[in-house]
Amino acid sequence: MGGPLIQCQDVWKRYGKKEALRGLNLTLESGKIVGLLGPNGSGKTTLIKVLNGLLCPEHGTVLIDGEAPGTYTKSIISYLPDKPYFAGWMKVSDLFDFFGDFYMDFDRERAEQMCKALLIDTSLKMKTLSKGTKEKVQLILVMSRRAKLYLLDEPIAGVDPAARDFILSTILNNYNQDGTVLISTHLISDVERVLDEVVFIQNGQVVRQELVDDIREKEGKSVDELFREVFRTIPYGGGEW
């Protein structure tokens, strides 16, 4: 291959009057775990949806592994949406069938092993699972594909700290080493040590893209601290009550 895995050039996306992406440029290489960080409403989810072809930008070019979003790119992207989308009546094992049918690169055995490790009974229906367990099942499905690009939208937001550690180690253990993982989150301190690189996004533009250790070396502070500084909002000082 050689070329970058993700290439976005001057990408614009509007929802009505609201501009979610405003001339965004981004290039990402293969073989990395990258954090997509930004405050609420900065365009993280929109960018992820543009990358996986769920949204079509009004302007600009998006190339994944050299191709515009379409059938090929969908076959190499494994996507974890920010909310669960599976029908409640389906059993975990039904979902395995589903993924097996949809994706050539789905490794059912791996998915079953992960469920076993987590003591998740695959004969249970999705609607009987707790919110956290649902999220784990979803992550298991996504990480059981041998994809080139994993797009994980807020994978750790809804689960307890112990489950967070589990999810992060699942990502570390299971991502395809030639593939790239893009994780959007605002829980930076939890993910910082698994990341190679971070992309800061604000008002629909990339404002900073750097290696985690370069930031620590240059700034003498963690990415989490840097984030708080870059995106600091001055609290409203209401004066005397």
Partner: peptide, 11 residues
């Protein structure tokens, strides 16, 4: 080692 330390393999 990376898994044990919970860090990125490249690091």
């Amino acid at each position: 080692l990376a898994t044990e330390a919970g860090v990125n393999p490249n690091t």
